[in-house]
Nucleic acid binder design. Structure first.
Length: 285
DNA sequence: GCCCAGGGAATCG
DNA sequence: CGATTCCATGGG
């Protein structure tokens, strides 16, 4: 088990007992698209309709202006703080290659995001690059999200369902606009019930997700992993396909299968980081 | 101009 | 079935 320690100091919350975590890697590895930082230490973002300023310092996480209520209801689960990543990494490190990956990319935690935001975000991600994905999502929030703090919340499915493809022109999402609208319509109408996705048999959940136009196996797995807590999902994109053929020709080692989604993030980050290191750092961040 | 980007739908043998 | 091609847009 984790030995999480939570201390209040004024209006801030300080959380320690998670020394193996790397906040910057976690927020900037391409699993969530609404976090930004000027210095790589302090991060600002909006999730579940709440703005957060957070930094990693003195061996812990500093949640600025955060009530223990918000921490318990939102951030504790969002940052997956009750999972013992140390034990997980020790277990999968019985494989030599995974041990190296854990050492170089094991600070990432899989964020538990809002299911609708995750579905919509990974629809936008298809055949796209991370900086542009962030831009499209930011414009979508500015276009029709509710104001929150210094920014805008991610718009609800109902709000987007009230719009047309032409209405989405300002966000410049290209051919993905029609997919966003279809997803919003199916979620807002109840035809796709995202609240069931955390408990449905995984093949049923995946099939449900794929009833949305523009949602195939990869986007479905990303939405299930990052938005519905389904860590058995292992989304395969171009980076993972490359990494797997280079590092694990016989597939994911059995010891990692129960945590496939978390290990996928480690591998994804490890592979992209090595690409950046060997190409002069000009690889997309 | 080219190629690629956290893919998927449509089309064609 | 598997293999191509097209899809919008922006950066390198």
């Amino acid at each position: 088990m984790n030995n999480l320690h939570i201390a209040q100091s004024g209006s801030d919350l300080f959380v320690s007992g998670i020394e193996e975590m790397n906040l910057a890697d976690t927020l900037d590895c391409g699993q969530a698209f609404r976090w930004s930082s000027d210095d790589g230490v302090t991060w600002r973002g909006i999730a579940f309709g709440k703005e957060l300023n957070i930094s990693q310092q003195d061996g812990g996480l500093l949640f600025k202006d955060t009530s223990s209520d918000d921490f318990d209801k939102v951030w504790r689960r969002y940052f997956d703080l009750d999972r013992d990543y140390t034990a997980l990494k020790t277990q999968i490190s019985t494989n030599g290659t995974l041990k190296t990956i854990c050492q170089q990319a094991g600070g990432i935690r899989v964020l538990y995001q809002d299911s609708w935001e995750a579905l919509c975000s990974f629809i936008i991600s298809q055949n796209n690059n991370i900086p542009r994905i962030k831009g499209i999502i930011e414009r979508l929030c500015e276009l029709c999200g509710n104001p929150v703090g210094s920014g805008y919340a991610f718009p609800s499915a109902e709000r987007i369902a009230a719009m047309t493809v032409d209405d989405l022109a300002p966000i410049r999402s290209g051919f993905r606009a029609k997919y966003i609208i279809d997803a919003a319509n199916k979620v807002a109408s109840g035809q796709l019930d995202l609240s069931q996705m955390s408990s449905l048999p995984i093949d049923d959940a995946r099939a449900q997700m794929m009833t949305v136009k523009g949602v195939g196996p990869k986007v479905a797995d990303c939405a299930l992993l990052f938005g519905c807590g389904r860590i058995e999902c292992f989304p395969v994109d171009v980076w993972i396909r490359r990494a797997m053929s280079e590092l694990f020709e016989d597939g994911l080692p059995a010891v990692a299968v129960p945590y496939a989604g978390i290990v996928q993030q480690f591998i994804f980050h490890y592979r992209r980081r090595s690409a950046a290191a060997t190409s002069g750092g000009d690889t997309p961040q």
